[in-house]
Design a protein around this nucleic acid. Structure first.
Lengths: 238, 238
DNA sequence: CGGGTTTTTGAATTTTATCAATGGCTGTGG
DNA sequence: CCACAGCCATTGATAAAATTCAAAAACCCG
């Protein structure tokens, strides 16, 4: 709690931020002072909900494996997926009384639940924990602003390129392969994330394939063949 | 810092949140413990920048009068306005080392600058201040998620209706007139906020006018004639 | 291997953007 | 006080992009 205030959790080591206290999912224990609290893990099947909008929020969630999608809906069924959460990510740390969106497991996943009472306790007793939460929220805000630019200004093919690059960059950050991407979600979910129909997503993935920027191994696996060109495309320098 | 954790700053009284410490702009003083710090105010002309992307962040800003737009750009000039900030609003409380977006004054405005060193001090010394910041960020996150739904899923006319309702609801919250809206920004700025061109914005405002949902007094003043129908339209129950 | 689901591709339609011109407001100077 | 210049905003016609509807192909699981 000194003069340090740069927000760097976007980059590299996740244990630098809030994960210091909550863990990165390797252990199911949380230390508060000298006592340990055991949190609960559970497996979820595709399309199971962790929570629905307006449910009371009693826990925050940490994805251990798989992917969770968080979304809002219009009354007629149109859906906007706000964020895909991957292993290590925390859902709901902004804590309101009730959930402001739906949280759905998109593929077979393991998820850890952490009671918000524990978060409260950490806030009270652990110096620096509040600051870490602020940084995590700031990072989330920055990422959503990126997504706003994509949704508001980019063409379909630019959106798809941007989406692939996001996964590529995440891979890099997590020590994975920058060029080999695993897409656990369906085309329809990608569409609901990018503000496009399933057909438009498919067509533009095909276009990227035809122009030699990517190779589609199978529907869940894409390889980036020309990263610089993909980046140019994503930034609108078509 | 007790068990209180519901986030209610969205509703009603602004002094309930972070404004407790920073003020709502009526006074230019900030109290830290028993000492007072005077912050600086300044008038800005349209199109002046408070900061540009990648500038070091030394201050946060509070709008006193007028409007400030915060935006990101693509290299080719396409612009996405992320948020319009109105009097009382704080810009930059998520504090990163450098700004992640541009901040431009959209009409003649008065803005107060608060050094981030003061925020640091408040975080260290004032119990509850960190919690208030978390709540403010959470509110901002929730509003941007709303905007994601609009940008990703709504049609042009639904976007315009949603935009007008946002201003109406803000008016209501601030004790103003729910039906009489002042639009300090240009059509072009509204377009860059909604992911539409200036012509599409104009056309759809005209459509709302023709269908009798609104009355356009002059280009900066709109009156809502049929609030329920406008709300239906904004929610996609066209 | 087969059935159901997801994805891809194609054709027609709708929506929005683009290009072009007109209209209207505002503020200034004669 | 009126006329005019400059800037926005509106409206119209056309073009481009994305959606919708429809069908075929590929994939996955048992």
């Amino acid at each position: 709690m000194s003069g340090e205030r740069q927000i760097t959790s976007m980059s590299g080591n996740k244990m630098a931020g809030i994960q210091c206290w909550l863990g990165d999912g390797q252990s199911d224990q949380i230390r508060i002072g000298h006592s340990f609290t055991v949190t609960s893990e559970r497996a979820f099947e595709p399309h199971e909900h962790l929570f629905k909008i307006n449910d009371m929020q009693s826990h925050i969630y940490q994805v251990l494996s798989g992917v969770v999608g968080v979304y809002n809906m219009l009354p007629d069924g149109r859906r906007q997926i706000v964020t895909f959460y991957y292993p290590g990510d925390l859902i709901g740390i902004e804590e309101s009384e009730s959930w402001r969106y739906h949280g759905e497991v998109l593929c077979r996943s393991r998820v850890r639940s952490i009671p918000i009472t524990i978060i409260d306790r950490l806030l009270e007793t652990e110096p620096g924990f509040g600051q870490a939460m602020l940084e995590t929220l700031a990072t989330e805000l920055a990422e959503i602003r990126e997504q706003l630019l994509s949704l508001g200004q980019k063409s379909a093919i630019e959106k798809v390129a941007t989406f692939l690059l996001r996964i590529s960059r995440r891979n890099l950050r997590e020590g994975g392969n920058q060029h080999s991407l695993y897409l656990p979600m369906t085309r329809s979910e990608i569409g609901d994330y990018l503000g496009l129909t399933i057909e438009t997503v498919s067509r533009n993935i095909s276009k990227l394939k035809t122009s030699g920027l990517i190779h589609v191994l199978n529907k869940n696996t894409v390889q980036i063949l020309d990263l610089p060109k993909l980046e140019e495309l994503a930034d609108g320098n078509s």
